[in-house]
Simulated scan of single mutants.
Amino acid sequence: MMLLLLCIGWVFASAGVAMLPMRRQYVPGVALLIAAPVLIVAIGMQMGWIYAALGLAAFVSMFRNPLRYIAARLRGEHPEIPQ
């Protein structure tokens, strides 16, 4: 039950952060980006790998642009950040 409440809280927090102006999204967005894999692993341990895979797909879908940015930085590129 606690895992479900944490996941619901994460979803509401991410929806709230998405409504912020772009310049104010960075700090809470990074916190959500770090918290998501922890929740996905917990889902996998409690519910099974299928539910963890679905959570991972949702996570990648929601954070596709920040993940692309991180991947580009790891490759040594310097992508443009929106204003």
Rank of each mutant, 00 (worst) to 15 (best):
G48V: 04
S61A: 14
L67N: 03
L67C: 04
R24H: 13
I43Y: 02
P82C: 06
A13I: 12
F12L: 15
A72K: 14
Y69V: 10
I8D: 06
M2D: 08
Q83A: 08
A52G: 07
L74E: 06
A53K: 04
E77D: 12
Y69F: 14
N65Y: 02
V60H: 05
P21E: 11
A36D: 08
A35C: 15
L3D: 03
Q83M: 00
F63T: 02
L56M: 08
A71H: 05
W49D: 11
A31V: 09
A52E: 09
L3P: 01
Y51G: 00
L4T: 12
M2I: 07
E77K: 13
L39K: 15
E77C: 05
Q25V: 01
Y26E: 05
V41N: 01
A52P: 09
S61W: 14
I81M: 14
P79L: 11
A53Y: 11
L74I: 13
A53R: 04
P82K: 08
A52M: 13
A18Q: 08
E77F: 13
V11G: 00
W10C: 07
V60L: 14
W10K: 09
L54V: 10
E80W: 05
G76V: 03
E77P: 06
M2T: 10
I50T: 13
P28E: 05
A31D: 01
I8V: 09
A71M: 03
P21I: 10
A71R: 05
A72F: 07
R68A: 11
I40F: 06
Q25R: 15
W49E: 12
E77H: 13
M47A: 10
L3I: 08
A71W: 09
R73Q: 03
Y69N: 12
H78L: 03
E80T: 09
